[in-house]
């Protein structure tokens, strides 16, 4: 007996429900950016985005409107991406391939007037910074990503991580201290 095949996605009658499609339209790029900032390579980040929105679809019914939708979405995204990243790291270790990319940042970005030597130097520094960030405990890494890279306020960070604002303040301070130490260990003078 042949099992039925899943339907193709290209049918015009199919697709995400309008609410989800709107969510994807509004937040897809932001979540992708968050996935890259969390240290995922572009391909893994795309997988991560898919996983996040599938989880959002499953849990949309549990959203009670106590927080802003964006905050709730970031909570789901951060947890999902954390798990996804863990899986990728495990697979990377298993296959001994460098799936986690230090080039989460735009690898083709070249500041105007940069020579090849300067480009190489910037790239090297980028990799070191990525490595230092990856070495931080995840609670420190997350606050730095949300604050410094995602540009969120302490209040939003507190809501997303479900901790007090005062905790965010002290955690960011400690994360900066740890990051500076890690950079020094890797030979980068602060």
């Amino acid at each position: 007996m042949s099992s039925p095949q899943p339907p193709p996605h290209s049918s015009p009658t199919q697709g995400a429900p309008p609410q989800l499609e709107q969510l994807f339209h509004s937040y897809g790029a932001k979540i992708y950016g968050l996935a890259l900032r969390c240290g995922l390579a572009p391909k893994d980040a795309e997988d991560g985005v898919q996983e996040v929105f599938l989880k959002v679809q499953r849990r949309l019914g549990t959203f009670r409107g106590e927080a802003a939708l964006s905050t709730w979405l970031y909570q789901v995204a951060l947890n999902t991406l954390r798990d996804h990243r863990r899986r990728v790291v495990r697979q990377t270790r298993a296959t001994e391939m460098s799936t986690l990319s230090p080039q989460a940042a735009d690898p083709h970005f070249v500041a105007p007037g940069q020579s090849p030597v300067e480009q190489a130097s910037v790239e090297e520094r980028r990799q070191i910074v990525r490595l230092a960030l990856d070495r931080l405990p995840h609670k420190f890494r997350e606050v730095l990503i949300l604050r410094e890279l995602q540009g969120l306020s302490y209040r939003d960070v507190a809501r997303i991580l479900q901790i007090r604002q005062g905790t965010v303040e002290s955690r960011i301070y400690r994360a900066r201290e740890r990051m500076a130490k890690e950079l020094k260990k890797l030979g980068v003078e602060g």
Binding site: G28, G33, A105, V129, L144, L149
Partner: peptide
């Protein structure tokens, strides 16, 4: 240093592929 990790924004084509 951390700003070096800022990723490039996803392009329209890439967003469509992800959608």
């Amino acid at each position: 240093d951390l700003s070096l990790l800022q990723p490039a924004a996803a392009g329209e084509e890439q967003l469509e592929r992800m959608r």
